[in-house]
Design a protein around this nucleic acid. Structure first.
Lengths: 269, 269
DNA sequence: ATTATTTGTGCGATTATCGCACAATGACAC
DNA sequence: GTGTCATTGTGCGATAATCGCACAAATAAT
């Protein structure tokens, strides 16, 4: 039904077409393969070949794109853009050390993720000493309802946003699973943490807790995950360090002036 | 002496100012903290406040930036841009599994990195079972001369580019270290792999090998690293699996049509 | 209350960006 | 070898996108 973006849509005087188009070009590379020709990219991005070429040249001049003869490929520099996010959140400085600590205490893999629409997006991880490793790496995404991290994230959402999410999942998740999901989230809201067992894979068990800012809004979530034969009991033992590290991360982020410094400061009467 | 970008520099008819400026805005967030106000960003990016605002609004409309009252912050979606690189190289699908395998065989941490100017940029990693972990995570950078990965990368560079690198390091690295570096790289060129001990930290030892495309050009490098008391001998035992995995990664990338599919196809006479 | 900053926005001026059109190049078939 | 087809590089005039100033409103600091 997406009625927006129609043919003659008002045009906003502040919208920078060129920027939007240029970003389209970067994303045209996505899974499409390592090196593309100008025409391919034009097709993928829906821009004219001439425009595509101009953007490619520009990006090349800026060092984001390399060209070999007439094939184009992304340069590692584009990672700077993605990691502008990571460094803007100061993940490496504020979150990673505490995550490492948690991993050492629990001898398990610990991750930090944020919510991106209906997905949990892995931003940082401290791998545990166990052999089995999570297949999805940093920057990877997983449907929120399939992991403890996702449940923790959803449990910290405002009610209306959560209901909106649940609504959007209808038809995509079978009803019994949906019911279970809601139960899990409600338990999470009550306890401040969640436990999820055998959702993404039968052998995976995880405990997770949301990270909030000073005004209680969701920032992300951390978890402790076991990919083997952890008992519920053994996982429960990880909850205390989990919550401890959680609040230390929250303190740390707040001290760094993270998202909404005062948060009280809305327009008053 | 950067004589370029001078006041009235010819102006290129194909360069998209708007794209370049918009990207500047994203990067203005970098380490500057999680949420900035329009004026800050204008200052940091060197653009006029009006222009800055237009780009912020545009990026917000595209979902890359969030706004709260009048603070702006990056949304996780910007990671899509960075990971356009990772997915364009199909790291997760082609490299990560083999990296995991190498880590399992050696019981050590294994990483994949690419060369970005004078730095090794970590793109993927399989953490080993040991407690000690590398402090610098995915997306992180380290001066090339300080790690086995960096040495491997440098050893696969064309001679002129390598010499250019060495030239640029003069004055930044003390002469004896530079001499050692050159010796290490030459050994690397001869053997096809390098061993580096105690450079970034006295306790770190690593063996690494470059990854090349079909035409022999550098793509990246992988390594096996030990953060404890590994002997030279024990590390040597890792060389065989390292080289084995290296060539399997190369095959895998080539099969996926990686960088320069035929590579013979230059302009002939 | 008064000043100093900041934000939001309208506007006319400018120039950056558009996409067509053509020549040149290489791919491929026959 | 020659003829087709697809793709690239590039000029150009037309147009619309982008510029930054300037002013009002709002907020924070003195």
């Amino acid at each position: 039904m997406k009625a927006e973006q129609d043919s003659k849509a008002e045009k906003a005087p502040w919208f920078s077409e060129s920027l939007a188009r240029g970003l389209l070009v970067i994303q045209a590379f996505d899974a499409s393969g390592p090196n593309l020709r100008a025409t391919d990219i034009a097709k993928r991005s829906g821009l004219s070949r001439a425009a595509t070429r101009r953007f490619l040249l520009t990006l090349q001049a800026l060092g984001y794109i390399g060209a070999d003869d007439d094939r184009y490929y992304l340069q590692p520099k584009v990672l700077d853009l993605g990691f502008a996010f990571v460094s803007s959140m100061q993940i490496d400085r504020l979150v990673q050390p505490l995550l490492n600590e948690l991993s050492t205490i629990t001898s398990e893999s610990c991750s930090f993720a944020v919510l991106d629409n209906d997905q949990a997006l892995f931003v940082a991880r401290a791998s545990g000493p166990k052999i089995l490793q999570m297949a999805v790496g940093i920057g990877g995404r997983v449907p929120a309802h399939t992991t403890s991290l996702g449940h923790a994230l959803l449990s910290a959402l405002p009610h209306d946003q959560f209901e909106q999410y649940m609504q959007s999942r209808k038809g995509l998740i079978d009803p019994p699973a949906l019911t279970k999901l809601r139960a899990s989230i409600e338990k999470g809201r009550a306890h401040g943490w969640v436990e999820v067992k055998g959702l993404l894979h039968t052998a995976i068990t995880g405990v997770a807790a949301p990270i909030r800012n000073r005004s209680g809004e969701l920032i992300g979530a951390i978890n402790v995950a076991n990919y083997g034969s952890a008992t519920t009991k053994s996982m429960r033992a990880h909850v205390e360090p989990l919550l401890d590290v959680r609040s230390r991360i929250e303190k740390s982020l707040q001290a760094a002036g993270h998202i909404l410094p005062t948060a009280a400061g809305r327009r008053s009467a």
